[in-house]
Structures are given as structure tokens and as C-alpha cells.
Simulated assay, not measured.
Amino acid sequence: MVQKRSRIKHTATFEERLAEEALRFREAAKDLPPGSHAQELLLRRARQAETASHINNCLRSPRLQPPKELQNLAAGQKK
């Protein structure tokens, strides 16, 4: 029997959700003692969310073009 995946309809964009996550992690890190292991982990997660948002923006950039080989495959053309 095949198990069906549950689908989630997001109301916020991916970038908005990443920004909210980074903000939550930074707020939680403020409540912890400076330099503690837990604070460092929260700050790392905040930086990861910000980096993911930056990478996503780069990938969605109109200046970024796929390699010619992939364009040919997408168009159904062969060399």
C-alpha cells in the first residue's frame, strides 16, 4: 500500500519563511548567555537560514542561465 504524502500550502514565500526563521533563532540566542554552546548553535542556524535565502535569490536571478546542454535537453533538441 502506497502511503500518501501530506501537502502544505504556504501563505508566505520561501524567502519570507527563511527570514522569519533567522529572526526567531537570533531572538532566542539573545536570551542565552554569551558564548554558550546553545547560543552558538542558534546563531549558526540563523546564518544558515540567511545563506539559504541568499543562495535562493542567486538561483532565481534572471541573469543566471543554465548550461547550453541543459537548455538543449529542456527544448527537446539533440546535438
Rank of each mutant, 00 (worst) to 15 (best):
L18E: 06
A75V: 05
F14D: 03
E16P: 01
Q3E: 11
F14K: 05
Q65D: 04
S6C: 04
F25K: 15
A75R: 12
G76Q: 09
L18C: 01
G35A: 04
P34E: 14
A12H: 12
Q65S: 11
F14E: 11
H37T: 13
T11V: 10
E69G: 04
A38E: 15
A52C: 10
K30F: 01
H10G: 00
S6V: 08
R5M: 13
E50K: 11
Q77M: 06
A29N: 01
G35R: 13
H37A: 08
S36V: 07
F25D: 05
K78F: 14
V2F: 09
G76A: 08
A74T: 14
R47D: 14
K9M: 09
C58K: 12
E21R: 07
F14L: 11
E50C: 11
A12W: 02
L32S: 07
S6G: 10
E69A: 10
E69Q: 08
A52E: 15
K78Q: 15
H10A: 05
L18W: 02
S53T: 13
R47A: 15
L64W: 15
P33S: 12
R5A: 06
A12Y: 05
L18H: 00
R24P: 01
E16R: 05
P66Q: 09
L64A: 06
A22Y: 00
K9F: 07
A74N: 08
Q3C: 02
E27K: 14
R5D: 15
S36A: 12
A22F: 05
F25I: 00
A19R: 12
Q39G: 14
L23W: 00
N56H: 03
K4C: 07
K9L: 12
N56D: 13
A29E: 08
R60K: 14
T13W: 00
D31Q: 15
A12R: 13
A19Q: 06
H10L: 00
R47G: 02
E21P: 00
R44I: 01
N57M: 08
K79C: 13
K9N: 09
I8G: 00
E27C: 01
C58E: 13
Q77G: 06
Q48S: 14
F14Y: 14
E20F: 07
P33L: 10
E21M: 05
R45P: 00
P66G: 06
R26G: 01
R5N: 06
T13M: 02
Q71T: 04
E40V: 07
A49Y: 02
R45G: 07
L32H: 03
L32T: 01
Q77V: 05
L43I: 11
S61H: 14
K4T: 09
R44C: 09
H10W: 05
K78I: 12
R7G: 03
E16F: 00
N72M: 15
L73Y: 12
R47C: 11
R24I: 03
A12S: 13
Q48K: 13
T11Y: 06
R26Q: 05
K68F: 07
T11H: 06
L41T: 14
L32K: 04
S53L: 13
I55V: 13
Q77L: 12
R5L: 08
C58V: 05
L23N: 07
Q65A: 12
A22I: 05
K68H: 12
V2N: 12
N72V: 07
H54T: 06
G76R: 06
K79R: 10
R5G: 08
H37I: 09
A28P: 02
R17C: 12
E21L: 06
F25T: 03
K30T: 04
